[in-house]
Amino acid sequence: MSNNRVTRRQFLTYTITGVGGFMAAGMLMPMVRFAIDPVLQTKAEGNLVLTSQKIADITDVPVKVDFTFEQTDGWYKSDVTEAAWVYHDGNEIVALSPVCKHLGCTVNWEGDPAHANQFFCACHAGRYEKNGKNVKGTPPLGPLDQYEVAEKDGYLMLGKKIANTFS
């Protein structure tokens, strides 16, 4: 130790700051953890949801299929309806999310008469090819998400949202 003696005043300053800091931390830590909980909560999701779309009726033209599931939002449970654009691609069924990858508006199949065979987002004129690939030069920066699909008794089931598998 050097011979810099700690003065009475310094000692008091350190102890008071230390004890005060400890108390403040003890108070604030639970509250801050409480507040940031939504960021740290892990949610299990991705149960397959049955739709009313007959597999046999799906063609190679995308149709909008609504599906409803129970959503738990904190203390609030409700039935939420979302949609997917569904079509046949060879033997495969493709279900695309209608959520635009620009800023989240909803895209429509051939929503713009000037662009046949494309998805169109009315918000900022974003466009996508049939497989969800974004058209270069329009606002979206990535392809539309896809849903996992399954079949049950001839009807379509939709599962988790996954990244587009065509690009």
């Binding site: 639970p30 509250m31 953890r33 409480f34 909980d37 740290l40 904190g74 203390w75 609030y76």
Partner: peptide, 17 residues
């Protein structure tokens, strides 16, 4: 009531806050 139940039992440190 549900929100109080949720914040106390489902949120981290909810019981403490």
């Amino acid at each position: 009531w549900k929100s109080v139940y949720y914040l106390q039992n489902e949120v981290a440190f909810g019981e403490i806050v």
